[in-house]
């Protein structure tokens, strides 16, 4: 009987150790994601004037360099869709604020996990929401975030294309119309412009 108890305890310890390893990775990813709500600060953005083809001057050392969009983004754009990326995670107050505002304005529906564009946009725009703690697409934020600010969430990216060329715009922090970041209405305007670019 004692042997079985020991085996039971050992199994429990193995499960706990395995779970802890999983939790360690989650904890590390959380630690790597800067919670702007925790800081009570939001990074300034580059106001939208036009879509970018390369990195703009607000990306410092990367200015003028070619953007290596992930293949799953270029694939969608080449299939004729505008892509909107939304990097977020549970408990990120500015992410929640932006998501709720986008829902109120009728841009998206559902929750962040399974969110989609509302019918007026769904035909032309593919929404990809990326939970930076649990998604295997987290690394894509290093492409679109300003250097040194890769960990700041939320990140919103709009990618469009025209005859094989890709154009994009991105900002970090909530879409609140402050500090160079667009408001949700301005984001809607940007998406509509992206659709026009897509349609030539």
């Amino acid at each position: 009987m004692k042997v079985w108890k020991l085996v039971g305890v050992l199994i429990a310890l193995v499960v706990l150790a395995g779970g802890s390893l999983n939790a360690y990775v989650t904890s590390q990813r959380l630690n790597e994601s800067t919670c702007l709500g925790c800081l009570a600060l939001n990074p300034r953005g580059a106001p939208f004037t036009d879509f970018w083809s390369a990195y703009p001057d607000s990306y410092g050392s990367r200015e003028g360099k070619e953007v290596q969009h992930p293949s799953w983004v270029t694939g969608e754009v080449n299939n004729g869709s505008v892509v909107m990326l939304f990097f977020w995670y549970h408990g990120c107050q500015p992410c929640k604020q932006q998501w709720d505002d986008m829902k109120k304005r009728g841009l998206v529906e559902g929750s962040e996990e399974d969110g989609r564009m509302t019918p007026p946009y769904a035909q032309n725009v593919t929404l990809i929401t990326i939970d930076v703690v649990n998604s295997d697409r987290t690394d894509a934020r290093t492409v679109y975030a300003q250097p040194g600010r890769e960990e700041f969430t939320p990140i919103t990216v709009v990618v469009t294309g025209d005859q094989g060329n890709l154009y994009w715009y991105a900002f970090q922090g909530p879409a609140d119309g402050v500090g160079g970041r667009p408001s949700v209405q301005e984001l809607i305007d940007i998406i509509e412009m992206a659709i026009q670019v897509r349609e030539g």
């Binding site: 919670c35 925790c38 800081l39 009570a40 107050q93």
Partner: peptide, 29 residues
């Protein structure tokens, strides 16, 4: 966390000190 004073001391103020012009103030500032 939104109201945490330890976060204010060890995260918010250092972030502002490193890049004073790089941020706007959030709702919980």
């Amino acid at each position: 966390t939104n109201l945490c004073p330890v976060g204010g001391l060890t995260a918010t103020l250092p972030a502002l000190a490193l890049d004073p012009g790089g941020y706007t103030l959030g709702v919980y500032f």
